[in-house]
Structures are given as structure tokens and as C-alpha cells.
């Protein structure tokens, strides 16, 4: 597998995954039953995990499955079930039309910047590396991705790594302190 292979199967997988992801993300926002929208959130997270695999990030796809699909969605569903004696459904503010306009303007602006406003040719891997460098890059992406990731986490980003573990400890203690019976 090289860095620039584009097959029909990859193309098809991209379109299926991205359409599923976007449609279920819209369903999360629009469906009135909150429990069902949590189920659609799981579909969105699964689609993003599939896109990670398409991008050659299998480790991140596994992390996404374990943390998001396995833990966060279960937490959200628990919270929905614990607070569900009210029948409001999933109401919106009255000013949702200007908010929708802002979101659409953001998407169009991002589309313009991505397609017209940026010169990607100076920075693309496929055009700026010679054959030897592309071979090294392919090795990092497809064979050595987890060792390289571990090396970065424990050398270049070691301070952020330790801080994140402190943050997780603080979040766990804080959540316990907040919901404890007094």
C-alpha cells in the first residue's frame, strides 16, 4: 500500500461513511426523542471511526470505539434515562433560525477557504516528497504508526501527556464529589 493509491472501493467507502455520518449527525440534532438521538450519536461516532480507518489511523479508530462508542455514549444514555420523567422532548430556543444561518455561513466560509483560499500544492505529501521520502512516510503511516505515536507521546508531548492524566484524575474526583449524596 502506498500513499497515493485511490481505488474504487476506498472511494465508495468514503462516500457511504460520510453520508451516513452527516445524516445521523443531523438526526441527533433534529429528532424529538432524546433517547433515539443518543442512538444516532452512536451511528455518527461509528462513521467517524470508519473514516479514521480510511485515513490510515487504525489506532485512533480503536480508541474512538473504546472511548466514544463504549464509554461516553453509555454515560449519555444513562444520564438520559435518569432524567427522563419530563415530556418536553428535545426543544429548541426561539432564536434557532439566526443560529442556523450562522452555522450555514460558517460551513460556506470553510468551504471557500478550503477549496479556493488555500494553496495546498506547496504542502501536500504526494507532490513535495521524493520517492525515498514517500517510502519513509508510508512506513510511518502503515507499519510503524503505533511505535511512532508512542515515541511522540512519551518524548515530544510528554508534558501534555502527564497533564492529561492529572486532568482525568481531577475530572473523576470532581464528578464523584458532584453527584455524591450529602
Amino acid at each position: 500500500m502506498t500513499l497515493t493509491t485511490e481505488s474504487f472501493a476506498v472511494e465508495l467507502a468514503f462516500w457511504i461513511l460520510s453520508i451516513c455520518t452527516v445524516i445521523s449527525a443531523i438526526a441527533v440534532i433534529q429528532i424529538q426523542d432524546l433517547f433515539r438521538s443518543a442512538l444516532f450519536l452512536i451511528v455518527t461516532l461509528l462513521g467517524v471511526a470508519g473514516l479514521f480507518i480510511l485515513l490510515g489511523a487504525e489506532f485512533l479508530a480503536g480508541v474512538q470505539l473504546m472511548v466514544y462508542v463504549g464509554a461516553i455514549s453509555v454515560l449519555i444514555i444513562f444520564a438520559i434515562l435518569m432524567t427522563r420523567d419530563l415530556e418536553e422532548g428535545n426543544p429548541s430556543h426561539s432564536f434557532r433560525l439566526p443560529v442556523a444561518i450562522v452555522a450555514i455561513i460558517f460551513i460556506l466560509f470553510a468551504y471557500y477557504v478550503i477549496t479556493q483560499g488555500t494553496d495546498w500544492n506547496g504542502r501536500l505529501i504526494s507532490e513535495n516528497l521524493d520517492a525515498e521520502q514517500q517510502k519513509v512516510a508510508a512506513t510511518v503511516f502503515f507499519k510503524e504508526s503505533i511505535p511512532s505515536l508512542a515515541r511522540m507521546l512519551l518524548t515530544d508531548f510528554v508534558l501534555a501527556f502527564e497533564m492529561v492524566s492529572v486532568l482525568l484524575l481531577a475530572a473523576a474526583l470532581g464528578a464523584l464529589a458532584l453527584v455524591r449524596d450529602r
Binding site: 455520518t21 443531523i26 441527533v28 426543544p91 429548541s92 443560529v99 460558517f106
Partner: peptide, 14 residues
């Protein structure tokens, strides 16, 4: 995806 989430964060009451 960011835009859809932005709309949801700003417009939902729940």
C-alpha cells in the same frame, strides 16, 4: 460536522 454541532450547541434547550 462542526457546523451541525455548532447549530445544536447554540439552539438546543436540553
Amino acid at each position: 460536522l462542526f457546523g451541525i454541532g455548532l447549530y445544536g450547541v447554540l439552539s438546543k434547550k436540553h
